[in-house]
Design a protein around this nucleic acid. Sequence first.
DNA 1: GGGTTCAACCTAGGGATGTTAGGAAGCGCC
DNA 2: GGCGCTTCCTAACATCCCTAGGTTGAACCC
Lengths: 189, 189
Amino acid sequence: MPRAGITPDALVAAAADLADEIGFENLTLAALAKRFGVRDASLYTHVRGLADLQERVALLALTEWAESLGAAVEGRSGRDALVAFADAYRAMATGHPGRYAATRFPVSPEAAAATPGVARIIEVCYALLRGYDLDEPAATDAVRLLRSTFHGFSDLEATGGFTADHSLETSWRRAVDALHHTLTDWSRI
Amino acid sequence: MPRAGITPDALVAAAADLADEIGFENLTLAALAKRFGVRDASLYTHVRGLADLQERVALLALTEWAESLGAAVEGRSGRDALVAFADAYRAMATGHPGRYAATRFPVSPEAAAATPGVARIIEVCYALLRGYDLDEPAATDAVRLLRSTFHGFSDLEATGGFTADHSLETSWRRAVDALHHTLTDWSRI
DNA sequence: GGGTTCAACCTAGGGATGTTAGGAAGCGCC
DNA sequence: GGCGCTTCCTAACATCCCTAGGTTGAACCC
């Protein structure tokens, strides 16, 4: 019987796609093995187990996300940058729900430190603030506010938390506008 | 052998406590049965299955949460009400992580409609806005912004999303201040 | 008190999953 | 062609959810 030609990277990429299709919480070694035409026990050659696979998918998703956010902010500043960042953020959350859910998997500090994408996301957030007039510790407070709002909205949207019969698109716009206003007025709040 | 004297309500309450201890996603029928000194199959007398148990825990958590949020807002208005609401929200998320995670379980529309707490939370959110000058559809946008920010911050805090060496307490205060400012200036944003 | 009935709890077992241990065989390299 | 590493396999076990059917505690009725 021929080899399936699995590599850890191919396995993790396929797992991320599978997670987008069926949800990160439903990602299972059995389903992933079936996709490669292989027994589930065979996956242990490439991955230490389910927890290891989940962490790798999380790190992949964080890296891809960081690139997408970085590219969105590139060459923009102020409100333009904020809108581009927000739209890239939400596009990831709604277009790749499995990957997005994976980003919230608690990765070990060592793995996070060894993955450039993790620090890059925070870095991009700080770059976003350069168009506004913020120094530490206000910048950290502002970054936390940005992430909280974006993450909260995306998460509530993804899990069906919003039920009112009103456009999510305009609510999202209003939220971004409100953040812009807050960042502009930060010292006067 | 004597009966354990289990009732559905006692079972769900114990499940909520167990979820707070080991995490909602680790809540298992086997662990719950062990807590009552009973076989897992015996729980099917009181509950239709794991999904049913999870939904009941979610509804219990939502009800308790609604009461807590309602009590916090009671007799206050404007900024006072906002701060009290925010602190009650965060206290639930950090003090009862299992229950908080349960509130994000997708409950069926019928069960949600039959549980007063679900509607009560939205109602309390709208009551919060009475101190500010907002009409529809702005009120819905504002409620969504409030929930997004509170949920996002709580969720990132609970899952270890904040790593910077800076007080979470002051970041939370600043976020609430920013929301107050946003609600006050809503028509001028 | 004795019988009836309901419901709580049990044992047994099947299917799915994660995981480990050890064996067979493809594929590269000499 | 032969050696060896790596991939993939089978076998087996533990845990979990869930179903089917049996046993027994406890309340109720006479």
